[in-house]
Design a protein around this nucleic acid. Structure first.
Length: 385
DNA sequence: TCTGGGGTCCTAGGACCC
DNA sequence: TCTGGGGTCCTAGGACCC
């Protein structure tokens, strides 16, 4: 790569994605406040439609608070598998513009459109074309940001929502972002934001002009250099189309606290089953397993992890490891969350692919066979261990 | 009002090896 | 009898993002 090639990076961000999908599919919801999220005792908001936002409702807010702010809101549970299908349609649309598409989540992606001006025109024309293609395929609206790097493109897409286009012109970037609050820096959250505020920093420009040695002392070498580079509108990270997943997890927050091995174990087993199912569906094996508990008192999160004896995608192997890890954790205090995750993932080799009749009767092959039967005859079939 | 569930990345400290 | 310095790997925790 030549040292100073001007890149054209596009960030596409769907508008209130989950809520917009539900409104699209049920016209009676159009124009009304819609909240997607869990209705249970400890549920939170995933997405609020634009009609709900003026009431102060936003994502990650406890649902109890959301419904007290906006009692007339229509609350719907998320349909993640369905949103995933629509996400694929969106990513397909984006691939008609560039092979360099990096999804960030179901509703967001980067595109590297460097050199595409001759085909698609100026940056703002590219953005319009992308929005139209998505709308044609999905009847949903997106906001688009264009700039010379990922950070600026992502920042830009957020500046004119919903249904907007923002192009940060090449050359003026630093002046353009300098007056914005430093929380707009990608990677500055509540903690770092508070920390920097206490030091007297308020804007991105303040960080850009900060003394590096002092910043390093406060944030550590890595974060200090990274954030100051971003504040100076510099970000060399490439758009990476082929990023592979590094972990597969499943966790659940219980409406009522758990206490003791007898209560925790069945929930942990269920999470291991879900992780194993995900692994098998993705054709992956995990070489490590992590267990996660959140204690109610102090909202304290603890994790324990270890390598597996053999790479595994069956619930029995995962659960055996999980159970051992659990032994090192206190179970007498009230527990609100139980989770499991597989990591150090590898591709299941072709020779290990399911052969219902020829395969040796390993636990993995048994569970793959059950998957196949379920896929064919439905989900009502259970099996013991 | 009381804090989801899916992830990624970074850091610090200890073990271990040479 | 006291004790190095560097490198790597692993674990746990924490911040952050959508």
């Amino acid at each position: 790569m030549s040292a100073r090639r001007q890149r054209v990076i596009v960030h596409v961000d769907m508008d209130a994605f989950y809520a917009s999908v539900e409104q699209r599919d049920d016209p009676s919801l159009v124009g009304k406040p819609v909240i997607i999220g869990g209705r249970e005792r400890r549920g939170v908001v995933c997405t609020a439609s634009y009609e709900a936002r003026p009431f102060g409702v936003h994502s990650a807010m406890p649902m109890s608070r959301a419904t007290s702010l906006c009692p007339q809101a229509i609350v719907l549970p998320p349909r993640l598998d369905y949103y995933g299908e629509i996400s694929s349609q969106i990513m397909d649309a984006l691939h008609t513009f560039s092979p360099l598409v990096e999804p960030l989540s179901l509703d967001e992606a980067f595109l590297d459109m460097t050199g595409a001006e001759r085909i698609f025109g100026a940056p703002d024309a590219i953005a319009q074309a992308i929005k139209e293609e998505i709308r044609e395929r999905t009847r949903l609206s997106a906001s688009v940001g264009i700039a010379k790097n990922k950070f600026l493109a992502k920042l830009a897409s957020d500046l004119d929502k919903p249904d907007g286009v923002t192009w940060i012109p090449f050359g003026d970037e630093r002046a353009f972002i300098a007056p914005l609050p430093l929380r707009k820096l990608w990677g500055v959250g509540p903690k770092t934001g508070e920390r920097l505020a206490r030091l007297g920093f308020r804007t991105i420009g303040d960080i850009a002009a900060a003394d590096l040695a002092m910043l390093i002392e406060q944030l550590g070498e890595g974060q200090a250099r990274h954030l100051r580079a971003l504040a100076q509108a510099e970000d060399d990270r490439p758009v990476e189309p082929g990023r592979e997943r590094k972990s597969v997890g499943s966790e659940v927050t219980l409406s009522d606290d758990l206490r003791g091995l007898d209560q925790v174990l069945p929930v942990l087993r269920r999470q291991c089953e879900r992780v194993a199912e995900h692994l098998r569906r993705a054709g992956l094996l995990a070489r490590g397993l992590r267990v996660k508990l959140r204690y109610t008192v102090g909202f304290r999160l603890v994790t324990r992890q270890r390598a597996l004896a053999h790479p595994a995608d069956d619930s029995a192997s995962l659960f055996a490891a999980a159970r051992e890890l659990l032994a090192s954790l206190p179970l007498h205090e009230p527990i609100r969350l139980v989770g499991a995750a597989g990591f150090d993932l590898e591709q299941r080799r072709a020779s290990e692919q399911l052969d219902l009749f020829g395969a040796p009767p390993t636990r993995s092959n048994l569970e793959h066979a059950v998957d196949a039967i379920r896929a064919r005859f439905g989900d009502k079939i259970g099996f013991g261990d």
